[in-house]
Design a protein around this nucleic acid. Structure first.
Lengths: 230, 230
DNA sequence: CTAGTTCTCGTCAAGATGACGAGATATGGT
DNA sequence: ACCATATCTCGTCATCTTGACGAGAACTAG
């Protein structure tokens, strides 16, 4: 068997939620060097016999207390610049997690602290700022052509809740009437439950749950950013 | 410094082109065990001080003779199941390469042979069948909302050439008149050169080159696959 | 010269979108 | 009780985009 150069392999997690009308990311404060005391993405080493998605689920539970299977998880990208970790050669597989509004996470594992931070966040350890930016852009793009926005909502939600997700993630207001027409007209996106919201302001709204669709056809496009005026 | 489990890290390449009116992938025949004699994706170990995209470019040149910078290259996904290589624990970062029609590649490095194969191809070594399928699906999806189809074409090409790319990658016929209207109406997709094609059948067509656009707004959607009749 | 092929420009109906009106039904303040 | 306000839901209308297709222009093959 030929020799091969040994690498450390880690998973890093971009965990996004919508809280208080804003897109927020889960950060942990590092307890150990390098970057001790700095904010970073949750993550850690992959174990010798562990699959990559399993490592992501385990780190999510260990460092934040979020249970497995409670959120959407997908691979984001892999980051392996030779100098990204001063200790050794590390290749990090980043995962994107979209979660409904959850209680404030508990710190655990190597984390001295954990919190939700509104994006954009300040400077992070390692290349985690870039990883987070890539995750946010992936989430923004996926809202256009998948029903993934519902992953930010609880099991039952109103169309207004769903619109608030789009507005928070995209950072722009949407017309409530056109949004209602679009999502109710996309087969498989939403299923009405027959129940109604209570206690909110204004007229009660029908509650919906996620439908079986995996694609939005046609997609719901963001208004393209306008070129600066000359 | 804590101990960490050592992994081998490789890059695998999904190199796609359009030849003879069909989407084709670059395969190499393995010279060494495991899977000696079987067809596989080109790839190899990442060197200790080498960045991941650099390793992808190097392997592309070594194993196939394709020069650097001659094609679009992007990261596809990372595959790291514990048993995907019988020798050791390997994490493989797959890259997607979209190339214009190039001469038949030469074998090199660990490859006993190299050839273009129409997709879908037969069984491949390791989990390369899955990786290739993921790469093909990524390419098909990206044609919808990016001008990436032009990466399959030479520097100057006709709109008919471009339509042939879409038809080959998607495997369906498209209406020439609607396609012409769509691509000429997408600002930044194509730039006319003022020159004209020669020697083909039918009326000569104007030659175009790639424009500066990076997105297609609105996208050119594939007709959604129809559900089987009941 | 004729048949066949391909490019390019038009036409028309159907569908999707953006802008906005308006009634229904809740809450909260006076 | 009454009114202002907020939100949900359904409609209207002009505009844009798409799919289906007609038709002439400009070439090659025989």
């Amino acid at each position: 068997m030929p020799e091969f150069p040994p690498f450390a392999v880690t998973v890093d997690l971009v965990v996004l939620t919508v809280r208080d009308g804003a897109l927020q990311a889960l950060l942990i404060r590092r307890a150990e060097p390098p970057y001790a005391g700095r904010w970073a993405l949750p993550g850690g080493f992959v174990r010798p016999a562990e699959d990559l998605p399993a490592a992501a689920v385990r780190e999510l539970a260990e460092e934040t207390g979020l249970p497995a299977g409670s959120a959407h998880l997908e691979q984001l990208a892999t980051y392996g610049a030779p100098d990204r970790d001063p200790r050794m050669r590390v290749v990090s597989v980043a995962y994107l997690v979209l979660a409904p509004d959850l209680p404030v996470p508990r710190a655990g594992g190597d984390a001295a602290d954990a919190r939700w931070a509104r994006v954009p966040v300040g400077a992070l350890a390692f290349d985690h700022g870039r990883i987070l930016a890539d995750g946010v852009e992936r989430a923004r793009a996926k809202l256009e052509y998948t029903p993934l926005a519902a992953e930010f909502c609880p099991a039952e939600f109103t169309i207004g809740d769903l619109r608030a997700v789009y507005e928070s993630v995209w950072g722009i207001p949407l017309d409530p009437r056109n949004f209602h027409r679009k999502v109710t007209g996309s087969t498989g996106f939403l299923e009405p439950t027959g129940r109604w919201s209570e206690g909110g302001r204004g007229r009660p709204a029908q509650l919906h749950r996620r439908g079986p669709a995996t694609q939005l056809t046609p997609p719901m496009l963001r208004p393209p950013p306008e070129p600066p005026a000359p």
